[in-house]
Design a protein around this nucleic acid. Structure first.
Lengths: 346, 346
DNA sequence: GCATAAAATGTAAACGTTTACATCGAACAT
DNA sequence: ATGTTCGATGTAAACGTTTACATTTTATGC
C-alpha cells in the first residue's frame, strides 16, 4: 500500500527524523546519508502524506474556493482568476461547490477545515453565523459578492447597483423608455441591487419606473426564455429588455427569435456580466462588463495579505466598479417614436 | 483557535472516545451524556478535523479531479458531469489543475495523496510512470482521454478518429473535396487521432488527402485565427475548414469574417467537441458532438465501481462514440463546382 | 591522547482523530 | 449477599509526519 517514512527509514538504516530532514531540504545531513536516503525514496516511490504534514505544521499551503456551482462561464472565469493568482504564489487551489444549498455549504466548509490555509467564499446563501460556526477562528476568509457586512471578513462586491443604473441610463439615453427587466429571484440580494439601479436610473432622468415591466427569472437561460415570452405578450411591447445576467439574456434572445422578431430592429436586449459568450451571440450582446477574472485575482490578493500579515491588517471591503460593453444588440430609438410612447404611457 | 475534541471532552466531563462516539452516531452512549456533549459541541462550535480523521480511517470520502486547466467550456462541462455524479454519491470533489505541466501534475498528485479515495486524471502529458511514482499503489485511478494503455488504470477515451472521419465523410458527401484542417499540436495524441480520421475519410471515399491542407494550431482560439489566415492565403482557397476543436473554429470564424468572406456561402467551417458556445455562433457551428458531461459521469461511475469492489474488478477501457451535430456553418457544394476543382488539383 | 566544539543523528512527543480492548457500574438471577 | 451479564465509558495505541532537545560522532586544537 502506501510507503511511509518509517519504511524508508528502516531500509535506509536511519531514523525517521533524518528522512524528514532530507525530504524537507535541511542541510544538517551528511551527503552520503542523504544520497542513501534519496535512493531508497526513489526505489520505494515514497511521497509524503501531506494531510499528516498539515496536521503537525498547522498549514497546508492550499486555498479553498467555494462557489455555488462549478460550471458555467461566469464561475469558470472566476476560477481562472483565482487559479492564476494562487498558482503564482505556488499554493494549491481546492475548488468545491455548494450547489446553492446551505447544508452543502456547511459540508464543504467542514471538508475544507484542516485542509486549507484560507478560504474564498462566493455564495449568496452564506451568512456570518454559518461561517463562524463552521470555520476555525482566525482562518482568513474572503467573501466574493456575498453582500454580507461582517468586520471579520474581507469582502469584494460587484457594483450591481451602479452597473444596472448605468445600463438603464444608456438605454434611456438612446431613446428607450419602456424597458422591461428580467430579475434574478426574490431573495437574491444581487438582483435587488440591480433592480434598485434600474429604478434609480429612471428617477435620475426625471421619469418614473413601471413595476409591470419587472419580470421574475432565476439567473438561468431557461428562466430568461420564459420571462421574455411574457414580456412579448404585453399589449404594449417594450422597446428593450434588460436581463440581470447574460444567461437570461441568451434565453430572452431565443424567445424573441421564436416570436419572429429581430434584435435590435424590433426590440433591444442587454445583459449583465459580459461573460465570454456575449461577443459570440448574433447580434453581439451589449452587457454590463464585470471584470470577473480580476475578481478572482483580487480575492486571492486579499487572502495572501491576510496570511502574510497574520491578523495585523483589518478586513477590507471593496466595491468593484463595472463598465458598459456596448455591442450590437441595442439600437437607438428616434425622438418621434419616443415622444409618442411617453405620452401614451402617462 | 481551533476547537479540538479534547476541549469538548474536558468541558463535557467525558473522554474523547465518548465525544467521538457521539459525533459519529454510535448508539452506545447514554442519552443524557449525549445531550450534554452535543450542547458543548454547539457551544464551542466544534467541527472535526477531517484531515486527521482521514489519517486514521484511511479514507476521506473525496474524489480528486485533475484537469489541464480549470476554465473554458470543455472543462467546465467535464466538471459539471463529475460534480453531479460525485454529489449523488455524497462524496466531496477536489478539483485541481496541472496547467499542462509535468511538474505541476506531480505537485497536484502529491497534494491529493492522503486527501482523496480515488482520482480522475485528464491530462495529455500524463504517463504510467508519472502516475505510479506519485500515487499510492491500489488507489483507484480513472484516466480521461489520456491515450495511455495501462492495465492498472481504467480509461475512457473519446473516439476522435471516428468523429473526425465522420465529419470529413459528411463534408465529402456534401461536395467538399478541398478541406483544410487545423490540427492541435505535433505531440498531441488527440490531434493525431483526429488527423488519422481526416485522412481515412478521404481514403474511404477513394480519394487522396492533401498534406498542404493540414495546418498547425494548439487548441486555442488565437491559434485557430492564425491558421485560418494562412488557409485563406492559399492560391486555391479550400471550400471548408475543419478545426480539431471548437475554440479554434471560433478563431477561424473571426479570421474569415475579417477577410470579408461569408460562412458558409464562401467557405464552410466545422469544429470538434460541440461545446455550449457552438450553438450561439452565427452561423451556428456544425461540430463533432462529444458527450462531455457524460464523460465526467462515466469516470465517476468507474471510480465507484473500483471503490466498492475493492480491486476485484479489472480495469475497463471505454471508447466513447461521437455524433455529428449538423448546424448552419457548412453548406452543400454543387457537382459542377466539385468536378472542376477535382480536376485542377490532380 | 584528551578536551572542546560542531556536525550529524536519534528519541520522544506532538498534531486531532478513531477505536480495540479494558474497566466500571448497573441490573438481574440465584 | 454474591456472582454473572450487559451497557456505558475510559485508556492506550494507532494513523504519518515534524521537530525540540538529547545523544552520538566527527573534527579540531593543544
Amino acid at each position: 500500500m502506501k510507503t511511509t517514512i518509517k519504511q524508508v527509514a528502516e531500509k535506509a538504516g536511519v531514523s525517521i527524523a533524518t528522512v524528514s530532514r532530507v525530504i524537507n531540504g535541511f542541510e544538517n545531513v551528511n551527503a552520503e546519508t542523504r544520497e542513501r536516503i534519496m535512493k531508497v525514496v526513489a526505489e520505494l516511490k515514497y511521497t509524503p502524506n501531506l494531510a499528516a504534514r498539515g496536521l503537525i505544521m498547522k498549514r497546508t499551503e492550499a486555498i479553498g474556493l467555494l462557489l455555488p456551482d462549478l460550471h458555467g462561464e461566469f464561475f469558470s472565469e472566476v476560477i481562472r482568476g483565482v487559479d492564476e493568482a494562487v498558482q503564482r504564489q505556488q499554493y494549491h487551489l481546492l475548488v468545491s461547490s455548494s450547489h446553492n444549498d446551505t447544508k452543502e455549504i456547511e459540508a464543504a466548509l467542514r471538508f475544507m477545515r484542516g485542509r486549507v490555509d484560507a478560504i474564498i467564499v462566493m455564495s449568496p446563501q452564506v451568512d456570518s453565523d454559518l461561517l463562524l460556526s463552521n470555520l476555525p477562528k482566525g482562518l482568513p476568509v474572503v467573501l466574493l459578492n456575498c453582500h454580507l457586512n461582517n468586520p471579520h471578513f474581507d469582502s469584494i462586491v460587484i457594483d450591481g447597483f451602479g452597473g444596472a443604473r448605468d445600463m438603464v441610463s444608456y438605454l434611456l439615453g438612446i431613446g428607450h423608455t419602456r424597458i422591461a427587466v428580467i430579475k434574478g429571484g426574490e431573495n437574491n440580494l444581487e438582483s435587488q441591487e440591480r433592480l434598485r439601479g434600474y429604478r434609480t436610473a429612471f428617477i435620475n432622468h426625471g421619469m418614473t419606473y413601471n413595476k409591470s415591466l419587472e419580470f421574475d427569472g432565476d439567473f438561468t437561460e431557461a428562466s430568461g426564455y420564459e420571462a421574455a415570452r411574457e414580456v412579448l405578450e404585453l399589449e404594449e411591447r417594450p422597446t428593450a429588455i434588460f436581463a440581470f445576467n447574460d444567461s437570461m439574456a441568451v434565453g430572452a434572445i431565443g424567445a424573441i427569435r421564436e416570436a419572429g422578431l429581430r434584435i435590435p430592429n424590433d426590440i433591444s436586449v442587454c445583459g449583465f456580466d459580459d461573460i465570454p459568450v456575449a461577443k459570440y451571440l448574433s447580434p453581439s450582446l451589449t452587457s454590463v462588463h464585470v471584470p470577473i477574472h480580476d475578481l478572482g485575482v483580487m480575492a486571492v490578493n486579499r487572502v495572501f495579505d491576510r496570511l502574510q500579515n497574520k491578523g495585523k491588517t483589518s478586513a477590507a471591503h471593496i466595491l468593484v466598479p463595472t463598465t458598459l460593453q456596448i455591442r450590437t444588440s441595442c439600437r437607438k430609438i428616434t425622438v418621434q417614436q419616443n415622444q409618442s410612447k411617453e405620452e401614451s404611457s402617462r
